[in-house]
Structure formats: C-alpha cells, structure tokens
Amino acid sequence: MDAIRKKREIDRLEKDVEELRRLASKGSDEELERLHREVEELKREFYRHLGAWQRTQLARHAHRPYTLDYINMLFEEWCELHGERGFADDPAIVAGLARFHGQACVVVGHQKGRDTKQKVLRNFGMPKPEGYRKALRVMQLAAKFRRPIFTFVDTPGAYPGMDAEERGQAEAIARNLREMARLPVPIIVTITGEGGSGGALAIAVGDRVNMLENSIYSVISPEGCASIMWREAARAEEAANALKITAHDLLQIGIVDEIVPEPEGGAHHDPEGAARLLEPVLARTLEELLPQPPEKLLKARYEKFRRMGQNVIS
C-alpha cells in the first residue's frame, strides 16, 4: 500500500515537471532542472527499495522481456529445435542453436505468452515433462559437440496437471538436475522473471547463476505459501517477505552469483535496455568459463551446489 502511494506521488511529480517544462518557454530554468533532478532521485530511491512483493509483481509483468525476446536481442542465427523424441513438443520451453558474439552455443529457456492466445499456447510458461526432456535433449547435444549453454528462467512453476503427473513431471525434473550437474560444458543461467521452484531449477543448474534485479527465485509462490501457512492467499505480501526471494536476499545467502541491473523502473519499461545491461554479464561469464577444462568446470559446479545450505546447520 505504502509503495503504491509513493509511486503515485512520483507519477504526480513527474507530471508536474513535464507540465512546468511545457509552460516554461525555452531556455534554462534552474528551478525546473532542480525539480527534475529531485524526481529522478526519488524514482531511483523508490525502485532501490522495492519490497519482495513489488518485485514479484514486476517479475510477472506482462511486458517484461521473455526468453525469445532476449534471444532476438542478444543472439544471432537462432535456430529453434523442437520435441523430446518421445511424446510432444512443449511450447512452454524453447530450445535451440544460436550464436553469442560469434560463439556457437545452445539456448534453453521458459517461454511465456503475451496475449491470451499466446499465453494459452505457452501454457503460461508452465512446462510439462516433455518440455524438460526437450531441454535436456538439446543440452546433451551441446555437451556432445562441446558448445556452451545459456538458460533463461522464467516460470511460475512446472505444470501441476493430471497429464503432467501421468508422464512423470517429477522424474523429468529429477533427471535434469542430475544430468545438468555433469554436462561437461559451461552452463550460464539467468533468472529473468519468476524462478518458480522445481520447475525453474530443472533448467537452472549451472556454473553461474545470475538474477535480474527484479526477478524472484522461490521454493513456492508467495500465494501458495500464504494459502498453506495462513489458509489465506491474500497474505501473499507477507509470505513474499518471509520467503526471502529477491535477488538481493539470494545473493546474500550465496544462492546466486550476480545481480544483473535493470533499466530504471524495471525491464518492462525498456526491454532493449535490459538486454544491453545483460549482454556484458553474459559475455564476461562466457569468457571466464570457456577456456576451463571440463574436469575443473564440473568440480567447481559440484562444489558450488555442495555448499548451499551448509552454513545454516549446526
């Protein structure tokens, strides 16, 4: 509530500045500049201190760039591959070959839809077992031909439906976790939106895990947590805070390696800007990992996950 009030205040001030600017005839008006700067400062302050629930809402924003957007903006020669060679192609996960700064690589990511039709087609970014199996198939292809892997994570979670259960949702996720731990090529993971539990982790075991500033990564959705803990989904804001799901929280406990900044106001304000900010992080990480021999890579990857949670037991 407080955040909404502040945001309104900022919007009002912003409008005032615009209005003043329009009224003031050309020339430098110091007062105007000062006001403008003040508003910018307020805005920055506001976005820096967003709560976990506000960030959850940003992470789910319908205009936030999705995997295919990042592929378009950051990769060349994208060639999508379909199917897991068993049952069906799952549109909630995209996978394929591409080039990043000229380097041949594999890209895998969750895909959400923007309009209703696309949303239904992409099943709201909730993969079924065949999606995870497709992801693994293409990643193993990368391993076979020694190509690095980029994954983009943005899902509310693995699809909790009857058909998904029948075809072994749990088995598909489990297998990905085990196999990703031993793929002998660099795996660079970026959480771009919602990191929804096992459904996110199933393509998020890697050498580096980066998180966009306003993305979240959680064992359960805040609504799910609230409805279990308090039998009231409406207390999601409380749950979001309790679960510690923001990039800043997770960097602190060593679950993610780096926070990727977003353009002012969030990635949805400026998708190109978001891609521009992500690009150097991916480039630097790739450069770091590419020359490493597989044994060293795998050992470090094992140790990275091996450490998780060790500091919270006594």
Binding site: A174, L177, R178, A181, R182, S197, G198, L201, A204, V205, Y217, S218, V219, A242, L243, K244, I245, L250, I253, I255, R301, Y302, F305, R306, M308, G309, V312
Partner: peptide
C-alpha cells in the same frame, strides 16, 4: 527455509 530448501534438490542430485 525458502530457496535454500530448493537448492538441496540440486545438491543431492549432483551427488
């Protein structure tokens, strides 16, 4: 235990 619990899935599977 939030996301720490989630990471145990990856840790055990890697082992």
């Amino acid at each position: 235990e939030g996301t720490i619990s989630l990471m145990q899935l990856a840790k055990i599977s890697a082992a």
